[in-house]
Amino acid sequence: MARRPALSPSRASDFRQCPLMFRLRTIDRIPEPPSAAATLGTLVHSVLEDLFDLPADARTEEAATAAVAPGWERMLAKKPELADLHEDDAALASWLEDGRARVRTYFTLENPTRLEPTGREEFVELQLPNGPLLRGIIDRVETAPDGSIRLSDYKTGKTPHPRYGTKERFQMKFYALLVERLKGTRPALLQLLFLKDGGTLMLRPTAEDIANVEAEIRDLWAEIAACARTAEFRARPSKLCDWCSFQALCPQFGGTPPELTADKAMTALGVA
């Protein structure tokens, strides 16, 4: 059974970057070819999730890095087309070493032998009253004996400049809103671990943070709903267009997106 339409941090980020990209991903559901960077992120997340299946004293850097290649083989068995990401064995070996490097960086940030997560890849979903259905997956949740909650998220990219990082902060506050409403407890700490360069971003959300992110989500959803009612999701050109997989369907590159009606857009997004 298909899930109801929902807004996640990723889809919110898509709309802000380019409404047309959001539409092609969320409404038209145009298939996209896998990318080496995104696949590496999936692999590293899987390795770090599985790390906590081991007894505490076995959660070593050696065990985690040794799990990278077998993890890739399991991914490849499920999706053989991923083999096309690499030109040859040398390219694959270099890519796997990138994965091991990110796993090694993780061990400079935390000692997993001292952690006992209460949730890993935790699915969260909340119907915002008179607003959209919100959905997300939190990489790791820890609950202390006193009931305080910490949310952690792994990023396989590099730490954003202090002037930037808006997308990352929004994501974690988004999750904080969901957890507070679902569990009745505001997370005490939100942390982002950047595995390319070993940086961190930590936030201690306040009541004002939660109120502000809810208002931000409602405003964003109002914009999305307005686009759906007119069936107009315009392209928003930026430097990121160079990495977009939808160029063939984008007017900025001479393409034409599929025909879209307001009824289809509203139904796909659950807009009244």
Score class of each variant (00 low, 15 high):
Ala262Glu: 11
Thr65Ala: 07
Gly41Lys: 08
Ser148Gln: 10
Leu24Tyr: 10
Gly147Phe: 01
Ser245Pro: 08
Trp221Val: 07
Ala144Val: 02
Arg16Val: 11
Lys196Ser: 13
Leu85Lys: 08
Val47Asn: 03
Phe246Thr: 00
Ala91Gly: 11
Ala265Gly: 09
Ala56Trp: 00
Val103Cys: 09
Leu220Gln: 13
Phe194Ser: 01
Pro132Tyr: 05
Leu133Ala: 02
Lys196Tyr: 09
Thr39Gly: 05
Arg234Ile: 08
Gln252Gly: 09
Arg25Asp: 06
Ala144Tyr: 07
Leu195Lys: 01
Glu87Arg: 15
Thr230Met: 08
Leu260Thr: 06
Ile27Gly: 06
Asp28Ser: 14
Cys250Ala: 03
Lys264Ser: 12
Thr267Cys: 03
Phe233Gly: 08
Leu240Arg: 14
Met202Arg: 15
Pro205Lys: 10
Phe194His: 05
Gly184Asp: 04
Ser238Tyr: 08
Gln171Glu: 14
Leu151Lys: 05
Ser46Trp: 13
Gly99Ser: 01
Glu142Asp: 13
Ala144Gly: 06
Pro80Thr: 08
Leu220Asp: 12
Lys78Gly: 11
Thr206Lys: 10
Phe107Pro: 09
Ala38Asp: 15
Ser8Ile: 07
Ala2Val: 12
Ala64Trp: 00
Ala176Gly: 11
Ile224Gln: 04
Gly99Ala: 13
Ile137Trp: 05
Ser13Pro: 00
Leu240Glu: 10
Asp219Met: 12
Arg150Trp: 03
Ala248Cys: 02
Asp88Gly: 07
Phe170Cys: 04
Met1Pro: 13
Leu182Arg: 12
Lys167Cys: 05
Val47Ala: 03
Leu134Asp: 04
Pro237Asn: 03
Lys79Gly: 03
Gly157Phe: 00
Pro9Asp: 02
Thr39Arg: 15
Leu115Glu: 08
Ala207His: 12
Arg234Glu: 13
Cys227Asp: 14
Gly131Gln: 04
Leu178Thr: 02
Gly71Glu: 02
Trp221Met: 11
Arg150Lys: 12
Glu208Thr: 14
Leu177Met: 10
Asp28Cys: 06
Ala56Lys: 00
Leu76Tyr: 03
Leu193Met: 12
Ala144Gln: 14
Ala37Leu: 15
Ala215Asp: 14
Tyr175His: 11
Leu260Pro: 09
Arg135Pro: 01
Ile149Glu: 06
Leu85Glu: 09
Val124Phe: 14
Met202Ile: 10
Asp14Arg: 13
Asp197Gly: 06
Arg229Pro: 11
Arg236Asp: 07
Phe22Lys: 04
Leu43Pro: 01
Ala83Arg: 15
Glu180Leu: 09
Met202Thr: 15
Glu214Ile: 05
Ser245Tyr: 00
Val103Thr: 03
Ile27Ala: 10
Thr267Leu: 13
Ser245Asp: 07
Ser245Met: 08
Leu54Pro: 00
Thr185His: 12
Gly165Pro: 02
Val103Glu: 08
Met202Cys: 12
Arg3Cys: 06
Asp263Met: 15
Val124Cys: 11
Ala66Gln: 06
Ser152Arg: 11
Ala66Trp: 01
Pro257Gly: 06
Gly184Glu: 09
Leu133Asp: 02
Pro117Glu: 09
Pro187Met: 09
Arg16Met: 08
Leu220Pro: 10
Leu192Pro: 02
Gly184Lys: 05
Arg74Asp: 10
Leu189Asp: 14
Leu203Gln: 13
Phe15Glu: 12
Leu190Tyr: 04
Pro31Ala: 01
Val124His: 11
Met202Val: 14
Ala69Leu: 13
Glu87Thr: 13
Thr200Cys: 11
Gly184Asn: 03
